[in-house]
């Protein structure tokens, strides 16, 4: 009896290692086969998993009686972090990513129940609880890393979108054009204004076309941002010509009571370009003798 209570999970795991690894890997492969095996290198997976199993064994050696608490720089945490980050980037669903350690739990439980130790209820319960504790911690960690990775991805994407969608184009000497595309929130509005002002100073521009064709709705906050941009541009000596207000947009602005009367507006970008060139004393003319 006492001998069985002294049953050592770490030693048991060491003896079972190869068998556990085999059962675990075949479970994983059968679940991942359909969606992920083209992104997972099975050889690498084996190597990683063997390493993880070894780290779990060491945990049991180091914490034979008490429950393990993950510390951020422990080897096993680093290992789990790196492989779940990788999987989140590869497009694994969170359930499939956590399946990795849940499958290990299943394999370990099954083997323990078949073992001689299963006859001793106290020893068995202790072993199961220890395994469960470790796997639960790892599962939570995988979830956490998954969410972190996706959030970082989203943040990066919105940053790239921000850069993408606020170009300031030099149309002609002293004429700039800013096509506003997409949602104009405070951050984007501020960035657009900054870029426009920089460009006005750099090119000594006197006219800037602000094209709002790509803005989904012209509400008061967008209108407010545009007004501020215009006021700032004027302080640097540049006139702003606004183009691309749709008929619906124009009616809505009137309903909102936004006063754009101080702003030069043109219905189309074409008219805006003509107007802007005129303001710098240029004109587009047809070439004589052209076909």
């Amino acid at each position: 009896m006492t001998e069985a209570v002294d049953f050592n999970v770490a030693r048991w795991l060491e003896a079972q290692q190869e068998a556990v690894l085999d059962a675990w890997m075949s479970d994983i492969v059968s679940r991942w086969k359909k969606n992920y095996l083209h992104v997972v290198d099975t050889e690498h997976l084996h190597l990683q998993s063997r390493q993880l199993l070894e780290e779990i064994r060491k945990l049991f050696v180091e914490n034979p009686n008490e429950f393990w608490e993950p510390t951020p720089d422990s080897k096993i945490v680093v290992l789990i972090r790196s492989l779940s980050t990788q999987r989140a980037k590869q497009g694994f669903k969170p359930a499939d990513s956590t399946f990795y350690v849940l499958s290990l739990k299943r394999v370990l439980w099954r083997r323990l129940l078949q073992d001689r130790i299963a006859e001793n209820k106290v020893a068995l319960a202790t072993c199961l609880a220890m395994i469960e504790n470790v796997i639960d911690r790892l599962t939570l960690l995988i979830y956490e890393v998954y969410v972190e990775t996706r959030e970082r991805l989203i943040a990066q994407q919105s940053l790239s979108l921000l850069e993408l969608s606020t170009p300031v184009v030099r149309l002609w000497d002293r004429v700039l054009m800013v096509p506003l595309i997409g949602v104009m929130d405070t951050q984007r509005a501020r960035q657009t204004t900054e870029r426009l002002l920089e460009a006005i100073a750099k090119y000594e521009a006197t006219v800037a076309i602000l094209d709002v064709t790509g803005v989904p709705v012209l509400d008061t906050s967008v209108a407010g941002h545009i007004m501020k941009t215009i006021a700032a541009a004027q302080m640097l000596g540049a006139r702003v010509v606004m183009t691309g207000i749709s008929p619906d947009g124009a009616q809505t602005l009137v309903k909102l009571g936004v006063d754009f009367s101080v702003v030069t507006t043109r219905a189309t970008l074409r008219a805006g370009v003509a107007e802007s060139l005129l303001l710098v004393g240029k004109r587009i003319v047809a070439v004589k003798d052209a076909p």
Binding site: D219, T220, A223, G224, M227, T252, L256, G257
Partner: peptide, 20 residues
């Protein structure tokens, strides 16, 4: 009321919603 804002906005939002 047109133009009333406690946050330095245009104060056109609510009166606008009423008309829209």
């Amino acid at each position: 009321r047109e133009g009333f804002s406690t946050s330095g906005g245009l104060g056109c939002g609510l009166p606008g919603v009423r008309r829209l």
